[in-house]
Amino acid sequence: KAKLLVLLYAFVATDADTICIGYHANNSTDTVDTILEKNVAVTHSVNLLEDSHNGKLCKLKGIAPLQLGKCNITGWLLGNPECDSLLPARSWSYIVETPNSENGACYPGDLIDYEELREQLSSVSSLERFEIFPKESSWPNHTFNGVTVSCSHRGKSSFYRNLLWLTKKGDSYPKLTNSYVNNKGKEVLVLWGVHHPSSSDEQQSLYSNGNAYVSVASSNYNRRFTPEIAARPKVRDQHGRMNYYWTLLEPGDTIIFEATGNLIAPWYAFALSRGFESGIITSNASMHECNTKCQTPQGAINSNLPFQNIHPVTIGECPKYVRSTKLRMVTGLRNIPSIQYRGLFGAIAGFIEGGWTGMIDGWYGYHHQNEQGSGYAADQKSTQNAINGITNKVNSVIEKMNTQFTAVGKEFNNLEKRMENLNKKVDDGFLDIWTYNAELLVLLENERTLDFHDLNVKNLYEKVKSQLKNNAKEIGNGCFEFYHKCDNECMESVRNGTYDYPKYSEESKLNR
């Protein structure tokens, strides 16, 4: 008799109507990190870190770059004969040098303040090359056809396309004075040089004057150069050297050249137009028929994500570079809930034993079982409120962090190594801060989002509990077992918050 009662009780308990509160689960393989956990499985997430590029040089917003090819900045601007293909260059979106560009200054020497000139050019998007001192009329008392084997072109001695090597005419090199007034309405880049012979005999042979000088002056520039005559090792078949100089001439300003020898005179100059998204990159990537809004030396990035880990040097509207390998923000729920887990921000989770793959029309909802059958029903209101809140948060985070910009490298010469090392340390410090901030932001927001979901499920549970009161009992896994019969209409009233407690209280009292 006792065995019969136990079996009867078990049958009745199993047959009781139930309603459970749960949440969506799926077959997603997404994982995120939080402050407290690593690799948390979630139903949905968004990636904030771009880690792919196309490996190509592309047009930037429809404008092609200027590819210097086998030449570098120095060779292009001075007019190395091997860089003749660059003479027609007028406009570009950015400038590309190759790491091993070999054609710079063909006659050995240095372009002074080269690093600063590169910085200036990094904001130039177009130029006009014009004859600042016409070759045939500007130097009537001097020979202007100086050439050298060091600047050979097609097997013949030649010289820079933008400079003139002035030497004596006959047996004399009379003092020369020439000036140019900038009437271009924009900055003009003027380049010139000073020749330093290897011996007094060479000085006399070329310029006749043993104590020659070169003077260059404008409103913002004033220097006097004296040739340094000295024996030097042979470089590119030359014992002599040429140093090259430049200045930016403001609109309306005048530049005056005065010399008694050794002047490498300007022939062509450049009127410059600035462009905020221009820059110089060093890259071996090849040019393709493609378009982008962000270019790196590795390749083009076409992404609206706020961060990238491809390269710190970028041109155009680019994500911020960070050292992170993963920045994924959760938008959905835990896919593998932890039992009795309390989140960092106070939300209680884990009283549900598992997510439901059968509930596909919402994030949170119900599963019921009664004599009429069983089924899932999503709670659309709480789901939609959660979707709206999380979507707004993700968009806000992306908008705040998605300050796209150009980031170019800084140039230092060989004598500025300590400054370069200090600059690298400062840049590394800023990069570490950006990386830390980005990672911390994602970790915190992921923790908040998961706790937010847990709290929403808990609130749904409490909503049902407050309606049923003692007409049902909690069975410990997020479910309630009714003390009365609850048909589909009754189940719907529980879900929509209109459950009639008094209607079922007498039946429940008897069954309790």
Rank of each mutant, 00 (worst) to 15 (best):
G69I: 01
A89P: 09
G62W: 06
E277H: 13
K156A: 11
T226Y: 13
N183T: 14
K70W: 07
N183K: 14
E250V: 11
S208A: 15
S200V: 08
P81M: 08
K234S: 13
N211W: 07
A25W: 02
L263N: 03
E116W: 12
N182D: 07
P251W: 02
R223V: 09
T18S: 13
K186S: 12
E228S: 13
H239L: 14
E119N: 11
A230G: 05
D113C: 04
V12F: 11
P227H: 07
N26I: 11
S45M: 04
V181Y: 11
V190D: 00
E128N: 11
L111C: 03
T14Q: 01
I255R: 01
T14L: 01
E116C: 02
G155N: 12
V147G: 03
R223Q: 11
T260S: 15
T260V: 13
T143M: 06
T31L: 13
T29E: 08
P174D: 13
E119T: 04
S137P: 04
Y213M: 14
Y180D: 08
A259K: 08
C20R: 04
N145R: 08
L86H: 10
L60C: 04
K135I: 04
P99V: 12
Y160W: 11
I112Y: 06
K1A: 12
R129P: 12
P81D: 09
S152I: 13
S137A: 08
G155F: 07
F159K: 04
K169W: 07
Y173A: 01
K38V: 03
R274E: 07
S122V: 09
V194S: 01
I255A: 01
N262I: 04
F11Q: 06
L86F: 00
H53S: 08
L166D: 01
P174H: 11
E37A: 13
N178M: 11
L163Q: 02
N27K: 09
S219A: 09
Y245A: 10
H142P: 00
T14Y: 05
W165D: 05
S198T: 04
I264Q: 02
I73T: 06
H195C: 03
Y207F: 06
A265K: 05
R274L: 05
L189N: 06
K70D: 01
L8K: 03
N220H: 05
C71D: 03
G261Q: 01
A64E: 15
L7A: 11
N54A: 01
V42T: 09
C151R: 07
I63Y: 01
H196D: 15
D237N: 10
F144N: 12
T43E: 07
Q238L: 09
G193T: 00
G109Q: 05
S93R: 01
C106D: 02
N26P: 03
R241H: 08
S125G: 06
Q204F: 03
L164E: 07
C106T: 05
T260A: 10
C58V: 09
L164M: 05
T260F: 14
L176P: 00
V96K: 03
N211Q: 14
L127S: 11
T43G: 04
